[in-house]
């Protein structure tokens, strides 16, 4: 899906836990997530901390959309 959407010229940031899979499906901007069952969260944190964690990850993803790249890149 990442690849086919990007083919329309729309930049896609793929936030996912298993980065090697993202590489094989051809995502270009890849941001590693937290864990498979909760990529944008961590249930062991309290609600406020967890939302801050999520905010930081989304900010990273938005920054990835503003990052110039030549080829598939993992943006941490």
């Amino acid at each position: 899906m990442v690849k086919e959407i990007e083919r329309f010229g729309i930049p896609v940031v793929h936030v996912c836990t298993v980065v090697p899979i993202s590489m094989t499906v051809g995502a270009n901007r890849i941001v590693p997530a937290v864990a498979i069952p909760h990529p944008f969260g961590n249930p062991s944190l309290d609600a406020k901390e967890e939302k801050m964690l999520r905010r930081r990850l989304v900010e990273k993803a938005m920054k990835a959309l503003q990052t110039d790249i030549e080829t598939q890149t993992v943006i941490e």
């Binding site: 899906m1 086919e4 959407i5 329309f8 896609v12 298993v18």
Partner: peptide, 26 residues
């Protein structure tokens, strides 16, 4: 199937004037 979904979604988003996509996976 994934490719077909991507093509349909991408086309709609393009026509709707969407500038970027946040795609999340587990």
């Amino acid at each position: 199937n994934s490719r077909a979904f991507g093509i349909r979604i991408g086309k709609e988003l393009k026509e709707a004037g969407v500038d970027a996509v946040l795609l999340t996976s587990t």
